[in-house]
């Protein structure tokens, strides 16, 4: 009896703590959404003053903000495309092939993840300056691809190694050429992993501040804009962008979950 009562208390105590922690995690997002409807009393005030829809009606009112968002989207697309291709190829090599030097490759892929961003950013800056390469749009792309590749490899690799290779063998047994087996069986099964990796890469690139700060020169991305504005006073439209990003990401997530075929969903759980 005593143990049952103890268990009841333990369970509910844990549930209450978990709920509070979830609240802590979600509170800033709620605040950002709330502040997107705020008319601040002064440029440097972060308190909620007055309800307004103006920020949503004209999100581009703050000078330069929408150009910065656009720049971030452009950089995000290029960095995502390049890092997804490079990372997917690497993941295939690592999961599907035996070769010498694999431990070194593993280490090189994981090292950027285990390095603080400030070290990644300053290293690249030191190299660019030593090589006399001016910083700008393309150096930001280079930097973003560098740290996104590792995340793509990890994501696609998890998907690939959970996959049943007998499906491809069966296709080859049924006289599919190796290329056909790849196109018709492997690729569709790995695709959800590749899509997830691409979404992850885009969100990492779009949101990156630290590495970008060291390698952007005069190129202003959205995080760089927010950083600069935080010294002069943040326009409330920044919160509109924050809230819109959140909404778009949730929609994308819902869409990818829906698009996943039932078999693939089970395959993902295998590992």
């Amino acid at each position: 009896m005593g143990s049952r009562f103890g268990r009841f208390v333990a369970d509910h105590w844990v549930l209450a703590v978990a709920a509070l922690v979830l609240g802590y995690l979600l509170l800033p997002v709620a605040v950002v959404a709330g502040l997107s409807f705020n008319q601040p009393s002064s440029r440097l005030s972060y308190d909620f003053a007055e309800f307004t829809l103006d920020n949503w009606r004209d999100p581009c009112a703050g000078p330069g903000m929408c150009a910065a968002v656009l720049r971030s989207v452009q950089i995000g697309f290029v960095a995502t495309a390049v890092s997804t291709v490079l990372g997917t190829l690497m993941a295939f090599a690592l999961v599907r092939h035996r070769f010498r030097g694999r431990a070194v490759v593993d280490l090189l892929v994981l090292a950027p993840v285990a390095t603080p961003e400030v070290v990644l950013g300053t290293s690249l800056l030191a190299l660019l300056v030593a090589a006399g390469i001016p910083q700008g749009f393309w150096t930001v792309v280079i930097a973003h691809v560098m740290f996104c590749v590792s995340f793509v490899v990890v994501t696609v690799r998890a998907r690939l190694s959970g996959m049943d290779t007998r499906l491809e063998e069966a296709a080859v047994d049924l006289y599919a050429s190796e290329w056909q087996a790849f196109r018709r069986i492997t690729l569709p099964l790995v695709l959800p992993g590749i899509v997830a990796a691409a979404l992850l890469a885009f969100s990492l690139s779009f949101d990156d501040f630290v590495v970008t700060n060291f390698n952007s020169g005069t190129t202003v991305t959205f995080p760089m804009y927010v950083w600069g504005a935080s010294q002069r006073g943040i326009p409330p439209q920044v919160n509109v962008v924050g809230t819109a990003m959140f909404a778009v990401a949730l929609l994308m997530l819902a869409a990818t979950r829906r698009a996943r075929p039932a078999g693939a969903r089970r395959g993902g759980k295998a590992r």
Binding site: L22, L25, L26, L27, P28, V29, V31, V32, L35, Y46, D47, F48, S203, D207, F209, F222, P223, V226, W227, S230, I234, V238, N239, V241, G242, T243, M245, F246, A249, L250
Partner: peptide, 19 residues
């Protein structure tokens, strides 16, 4: 819900703590 906060800009969320 655990991952969701990361969908909003990291800097904007940090500034939310100011509020």
């Amino acid at each position: 819900c655990v991952v969701a906060p990361m969908f909003t800009s990291f800097l904007v969320r940090t500034l939310a703590w100011k509020t």
